[in-house]
């Protein structure tokens, strides 16, 4: 059954026990993203200290893929520089848009490699990217505010 490839244990674990969930203060910028085809939504806040991402907090509702992917995001970007975080974001986006043909780099994506199966389901790629789009948008806003 292909479902086990799509819904890997790591994804279900993050869905049931999400990391970093809840909206926290202080924050520099907030982004609200919605997937208009299914109604999934996420509100995500970013706190930066210079070039470092010091906190990512979020609330949202949606499927296991969108919620787990946002949970994995927090693991991958908090404590890293904005530059490193965006490299990870690019790698995750490339994996998701790769139609199942991209070999993920576990050193870069860690738990994010579990989403490789999602790339084979075009309707779910937007779910996996929802939180990441919110992160990108929030960082751009935070840097805009600081400038």
């Amino acid at each position: 059954m292909q479902m086990e490839q799509l819904y890997q244990e790591i994804i279900l674990d993050h869905y049931k026990n999400p990391h970093g969930r809840g909206l926290r203060d202080p924050f520099d910028a907030e982004s609200f993203q919605v997937n208009p085809t299914c109604g999934d939504e996420v509100t995500l806040r970013v706190k930066l200290d210079g070039e470092t991402v010091t906190d990512v907090s979020y609330e949202g509702q949606g499927c296991s893929i969108s919620q787990a992917s946002t949970s994995v995001l927090t693991d991958l970007v908090v404590g890293r520089s904005v530059g490193e975080a965006f490299k990870t974001l690019d790698a995750f986006t490339e994996l998701m848009q790769g139609k199942g043909q991209v070999e993920p780099d576990e050193d870069v994506l860690e738990d994010g490699v579990a989403f490789a199966g999602v790339a084979k389901y075009p309707a779910r790629v937007k779910c996996a990217l929802l939180g990441w789009m919110a992160f990108k948008d929030a960082v751009v806003r935070a840097e805009g505010n600081a400038a």
């Binding site: 059954m1 292909q2 479902m3 799509l6 819904y7 085809t37 299914c38 109604g39 999934d40 949606g62 499927c63 296991s64 893929i65 389901y121 779910r124 779910c127």
Partner: peptide
Amino acid sequence: HPHDAGQVLDDLGVAVRVGHHCAW
């Protein structure tokens, strides 16, 4: 979540609609 249910149903050959069906 309905999206996840729809995915399992699809894997079994059952095509249903999941989402807000344009009635948000």
